[in-house]
């Protein structure tokens, strides 16, 4: 009947459950926040947490399986020219990604890997920090009109 009364009196002396925001002020871009002044260390993410994707451009063969299974259609195939050979490569839009790890599981060359990083806030939705592989796209993409159709 008075369980809550005892509970609150107990709680006033026990350790508080609040997780403080790691910084005093919100940074413009949390992808790089770890370099700046931290007042509360962030909570350690658990084993098996699925965070930001990383893409290995060199080992990718452009088979396109990942874009086929991606439930959110977050992986886009584009035509690229590498060593004067026409092939395909992908970019991953993290703003659409649901972090289901399907692409990591299906990739035959293990070109896509998953990390534990969860800091993905930015001002630009399609900024370079939120499109994995965009730096290669700028370098290698060829605008093929037949492909665009």
């Amino acid at each position: 009947m008075l369980g809550m009364v005892y509970k609150v009196i107990e709680q006033i002396f026990s350790k508080k459950s609040t997780n403080c925001f790691p910084m005093k002020y919100i940074p413009n871009n949390t992808t790089q926040y770890l370099n700046q002044g931290i007042i509360h260390p962030p909570i350690v993410v658990k084993e098996g947490f699925r965070g930001r994707l990383e893409y290995d451009f060199q080992s990718c063969t452009g088979c396109g399986l990942c874009s086929k299974v991606c439930p959110a259609n977050a992986i886009e195939l584009y035509s690229a020219e590498i060593n004067s050979k026409k092939t395909k490569r992908v970019v991953i839009y993290l703003t659409r990604c649901t972090f289901c790890k399907e692409c990591v599981d299906i990739c035959p060359r293990n070109s896509i890997t998953i990390t534990k990083s969860f800091c993905m806030a930015d001002y630009k939705k399609y900024g370079n920090s939120l499109v994995v592989g965009s730096e290669y796209r700028q370098q290698f993409e060829i605008k093929d009109h037949a492909d665009v159709e």
Partner: peptide, 10 residues
Amino acid sequence: KIAAYFQSRI
């Protein structure tokens, strides 16, 4: 503040 402490918050 006291209410928060009762509720195990900061």
